[in-house]
Amino acid sequence: MQRSSTAPPRAVSRQMRWSNLQRRWAPYVFVSPFFILFLVFGLYPTLFSLYMSFQSWSQTDGWGHWKFVGLENYSFTLTDPMFWRAMYNTVWLGVVSGLPQHLLAIPLAFVIHMGLSRFKTFTSAVYFLPYITSTVAIALIFNTLFSTQKGVINQTLAYLNTLPLFGWFLPDENINWFLNSTIKWGIALVVIWKYTGWNTLLYLSAIQAIPRELYEAASVDGATRWQQFRFVTLPLLRPMMFFAVSLTIIGNMQLFEEPFVLLNGGASSATQGGQTVAMYMFRTAFEWLEMGTAASIAWLLFAFIAVLTIINNLAFGRAAQGRGD
């Protein structure tokens, strides 16, 4: 009897304890997948690469067979002509392929917004398509387009050359796009082609957020289309410009896929003329098996991107925030 009288409260308290436990821990259980994945695939590799940048390790020696070398990897990389050449390529590509993306995307977004009321979605989707196309397919197509003798690009240039106006600044011979001196132009072309649509979409969404009344007020004041673009759209796009340029800086400094596939993974004889720091890092790690040196390149690149982002922030960030509000 005694037992049966004490049993129910005990059961209740057990149940309560369980529900308390649930209440207390369930949220942590629910958010844990992110943290577990982040720890395994985000934090751990990051810290490991920092540790690795002070070691010398060839992967074929097996796990754990590394040797502490202090700052040797960093001093080697900082005095490495191949690293600096890759750095030059990266910055060159960053500017030459980065600027046109925005110079094309902003007017394009404006035109799509103003002029194409019915085909707006379709047109922006078409411009976005290159962004989601597989890089391998892009490489196949552009390798054919860039072909020296029969490529469409050279054929077009040859045709333009016969016209009076273009004749005097275009070369008379077919351009070999796979030379150390020319490959960067080819890579820049692919990058511009691929990412302009993405930026157009960003700017289009920002333009759509601009209140219609502003344009109406401007046109009442007698502003032309160009004046509306110059004095209404552009100033109000500043926050988005800051955001889009930041993305371009970070993306272009880490540029990897496009040069990698166009240079045949490093097998092309124009590799030195076109490879970016990210590609050089990858090849140092997996082709020449210098994991420690590759880790030091990664951290130097990280530092460089951080500095660029801070400069961008100082130059445009505050202005963008001020005007944006």
């Binding site: 150390n180 001196s181 590799t271």
Partner: peptide, 16 residues
């Protein structure tokens, strides 16, 4: 790595 460096040198001689 030597192969890559020689390949670049060869390209410099032939192309440039």
């Amino acid at each position: 790595i030597a192969n890559e460096i020689i390949s670049t040198a060869l390209s410099q001689v032939l192309d440039e």
